[in-house]
Each structure stands twice: as structure tokens, then as C-alpha cells.
């Protein structure tokens, strides 16, 4: 799947070249606009992961900056608390911090829908007390130490309300983390409020 993602990212980046020429040089677009946002929503595990954890909520903040004329750079930080489904896992849940770095493409044809993608990094640590700490090979055992894994995400963002300084909208993200024995897929659906900085 990651091969597909790489291909997709390559194609999107190449397509962006088809943007009309502008008097402004590409390097001059960088950071000419910037915005911060807060976001909250729900996370839905997909595939085999449905048997591993319950749906949960997520929240966090983001930073968006202009990169090229119709392309923005995005940095996002989110937090979730995942509760395990199998009873064999002795602790209540797992803290997960997520970081995402990517690009958003604003195609005029489908405005106000924005498409984006990039790399994702999830840091996890089980919420356990030392006396109930499972062994490394017991269910949930690997998460009693810090575990980090990377992956990719693709997203669709819709600005529902646009004011001079503020935007309110819907963000839907598909995330695949490069775990084994299978990749881990999740869908994020959330609402955001964004404030333009400059």
C-alpha cells in the first residue's frame, strides 16, 4: 500500500506543476500565509484492527502554511486514548500521540474540497500500573515501553464556513501505519476551527 502512496504522492506533486505560471516564484510562496487550528473528532479502526481497539476520540492542533501557489504545507499534532477490546489485555488503554507532516492541494475544480497527504508518526505507551505490567510477549506487552511507528495519511478537508480570519470545516483522514503482521488502518473524522495568522 505504501508503494501506492508513494506513487500517488509523486503524481500529485507532478500534477501540481500544471498550475498556471505566476509572477511569484515558488520559493516566495513559502510562509506567505500561515494559520493555526484546533481540531477534534472520532477515530475508527478498520480491518483487523476493529477487533483490537474501540472507536475513540481525538483532539489536537495544526499549523498550515502556504508552500506553492495552490499547495499548502501542513503539520498536525493529535492525541487519542485507545481502549483495547480483548479482555486478555490487562490495562485500561493506550496513550497515543500522533504527528503528521504533509501537503494539501487546492484544486479550483473541486473547491472548497482540499486533498492532501503525507507522512504520519504515532507514539504509543500503555496506561498501566507497575503491578499489572504484562510481560513483553503477553497481550499488550510491547506497548508497556514507548513504541513509535510511521506510516502515511491521505485526507480530504472541506471549509464549510469561511470568514476573514476564521475558517470552520470538516477534516476526514485515512491513516495507514506500517505495522506487522499487517498494516494498521484508521479513519479520522473531525471538525476544525482555523485562525489565519498572516
Amino acid at each position: 500500500m505504501y508503494k501506492f502512496f508513494l506513487l500517488l504522492l509523486g503524481c500529485l506533486a507532478t500534477v501540481s506543476l500544471a498550475q498556471p505560471d505566476s509572477a511569484k516564484k515558488a520559493e516566495d510562496w513559502a510562509f506567505s500565509h500561515a494559520a493555526v487550528s484546533i481540531e477534534g473528532g472520532e477515530v475508527y479502526p478498520f480491518g483487523d484492527l476493529i477487533d483490537a481497539v474501540y472507536n475513540t476520540y481525538y483532539g489536537g492542533f495544526g499549523f498550515r502554511y502556504s508552500y506553492w501557489e495552490n499547495v499548502d504545507g501542513v503539520v498536525m499534532f493529535h492525541y487519542s486514548y485507545f481502549e483495547p477490546r480483548p479482555k486478555e489485555v490487562v490495562y485500561d488503554g493506550v496513550h497515543q500521540f500522533m504527528g503528521k507532516v504533509g501537503l494539501d492541494w487546492r484544486f479550483k475544480l473541486i473547491e472548497p474540497i482540499v486533498l492532501g497527504g503525507g507522512f504520519a508518526c504515532n507514539w504509543t505507551r500503555a496506561d498501566y500500573e507497575e503491578k499489572e505490567r504484562p510481560g513483553f510477549n503477553d497481550p499488550g506487552g510491547t506497548l508497556t515501553d514507548n513504541e513509535t511507528e510511521f506510516g502515511w495519511y491521505a485526507r480530504m478537508k472541506i471549509d464549510i464556513v469561511k470568514l476573514e480570519k476564521y475558517r470552520f470545516g470538516l477534516n476526514v483522514m485515512w491513516e495507514e501505519i506500517w505495522t506487522l503482521p499487517k498494516r494498521s488502518d484508521m479513519l479520522y473524522a473531525g471538525l476544525y476551527i482555523e485562525r489565519s495568522l498572516w
Partner: peptide, 20 residues
Amino acid sequence: TGNELGDLIYQDFITPENRP
């Protein structure tokens, strides 16, 4: 920062045997 890809993360809960 980086990682060798293939940690279990939540696959841990549903992979009792042949864990990577």
C-alpha cells in the same frame, strides 16, 4: 528520527503467536 518498519502497536492485542 526514524524506525525499522513493522512494530506491532495495536496488532499486539490480536497477535498472540508468531509475533514479529
